[in-house]
Simulated scan of single mutants.
Amino acid sequence: MKADIALETLKFIAHGVHPFSRQKMRKDHFFNEPEVLEAVNICINLVAQNLSKKTYLTQQDKMLINIVNGKARNHGFPWSNVDTKKLISEYIAGRAASTLSRELGRSRGAIVSHLELKGVTIR
């Protein structure tokens, strides 16, 4: 697992959201135990502190900063041709914008905007 996906998973858990289904977790779920939430938040803060000490940020570092700041991991990055083709073909095939946003590390708004920019009719 890449660090950006791992950190994104921790952020969802810290907010009481299942990292895969994106559904709110039950109050009695073990991830909502205070000790677990504290451990998750400590890990997130350690990553943030480590990144703040760097003088040169790699693309991976920038993705981690996006996640720490509550943004989609690819926020601010240009769209690759591969991601654009995948987005268009899978959206036309019926996949939901919200599903594609998770897979491509973009906000739902970025997905819709990019589709519109490329001339795809939004359903």
Score class of each variant (00 low, 15 high):
73 R>F: 02
113 S>F: 13
27 K>T: 09
69 N>V: 06
52 S>N: 04
100 L>V: 10
99 T>Q: 02
62 K>Q: 07
93 A>K: 08
25 M>T: 15
103 E>R: 08
12 F>H: 14
120 V>Y: 00
13 I>R: 13
30 F>R: 13
36 V>T: 09
76 G>A: 10
91 Y>D: 06
63 M>V: 09
6 A>R: 12
36 V>C: 06
66 N>T: 07
99 T>H: 03
10 L>F: 14
114 H>D: 04
94 G>Q: 15
121 T>F: 01
76 G>H: 03
1 M>C: 11
121 T>L: 01
99 T>I: 08
66 N>G: 04
14 A>I: 07
69 N>F: 03
114 H>L: 00
63 M>K: 14
63 M>R: 09
87 L>R: 00
80 S>K: 02
49 Q>N: 08
87 L>T: 01
51 L>V: 10
103 E>Y: 05
74 N>V: 04
36 V>N: 12
12 F>P: 10
107 S>Y: 00
70 G>S: 07
15 H>N: 12
37 L>Q: 05
20 F>C: 11
71 K>E: 05
123 R>L: 10
67 I>Q: 11
18 H>M: 03
107 S>R: 00
115 L>R: 00
60 Q>Y: 11
115 L>M: 03
9 T>Q: 12
65 I>F: 09
102 R>V: 11
37 L>I: 02
107 S>G: 04
36 V>R: 09
112 V>C: 10
68 V>F: 14
92 I>G: 11
31 F>E: 03
28 D>Q: 00
6 A>S: 11
47 V>N: 07
69 N>M: 04
120 V>K: 00
74 N>E: 07
68 V>S: 15
86 K>D: 13
21 S>V: 03
18 H>K: 04
77 F>L: 05
